[in-house]
């Protein structure tokens, strides 16, 4: 599987994402600087986490207007797989590739700990190696992860099964108790209506090796590889 990772000033998770992809695919991704206007022909484009442009104006707002974004939009619309993690998710909502928006966490704190999520839809190219309803554990590290969509948009997202992961308690209860940041309907990750673009706040790239405390995140990359193989 050929892949590319977009890098903006302030991106800081690109090497973690590269390690995860290399571990499961054996091929190192190409790093693409935000000033480039062409992304190489690849099967997967990752928009990684970090604090692009210091979160100035709004998280992801300035990165979403970078030169590289025009080609990202073109490739996403042609069906190439795009994965946005954390700041990457914020950037993808700012480009309009994903619906809704990510606002300040309800508790106002920067959150840096593990969360549990339930696999709501395992029929996507990002989640096909998870069991339906599987409870998984990923780390989060964000200040603006509170997913919001207006009622009409939310209904469309839910009706179409675009929600892939929901925050839950360790027992799998999808409740406010298991919701770290106030996201509407406990949404932690969702796809676009075509299913080729996904964004999520938690970090799959940081749970890829037992040495790091678990491998729940690795399954996402294995899902993606399985599809491309």
């Amino acid at each position: 599987m050929k892949s590319a990772i977009l890098v903006f000033p302030g991106t800081n998770r690109e090497r973690d994402a590269a390690d995860a992809i290399k571990l499961v695919s054996g091929k190192a991704p190409t790093m693409v600087w935000h000033q480039e206007t062409d992304i190489p022909d690849v099967d997967l484009i990752v928009v990684p986490g970090g604090f692009s442009y210091g979160d100035y104006l709004r998280a992801g707002a300035i990165a979403a207007r970078s030169p590289v974004i025009a080609d990202l939009m073109k490739k996403a619309k042609s069906g190439i797989t795009v994965l946005g993690i954390c700041n990457g998710f914020q950037i993808l909502t700012e480009t309009g590739l994903l619906p809704g928006s990510l606002a300040r966490n309800t508790g106002l704190d920067f959150l840096c700990h593990d969360v549990h999520m339930k696999v709501d839809n395992n029929q996507t190219r990002f989640s096909n190696k998870y069991a339906p309803g599987q409870i998984i554990r990923f780390p989060i590290a964000h200040h603006d992860g509170n997913y919001f969509a207006d009622p009409d948009t939310l209904k469309k997202i839910e009706d179409a099964g675009q929600v892939v992961f929901r925050y839950c308690t360790p027992n799998g209860d999808i409740s406010m108790q298991g919701n770290p940041n106030g996201s509407i309907n406990n949404i932690a990750g969702l796809t676009n209506s075509d299913g080729n673009v996904m964004g999520l706040m938690p970090h799959p790239e940081n749970l890829i090796d037992p040495l790091l405390g678990g491998t729940d995140g690795r399954i996402m990359f294995e899902s993606l590889i399985g599809r491309a193989a």
């Binding site: 104006l57 709004r58 707002a61 300035i62 207007r65 809704g100 919001f148």
Partner: peptide, 9 residues
């Protein structure tokens, strides 16, 4: 519309 506001929210 293009940058300063996120008209979703």
């Amino acid at each position: 519309d293009k940058l300063l506001a996120n008209t979703v929210i």
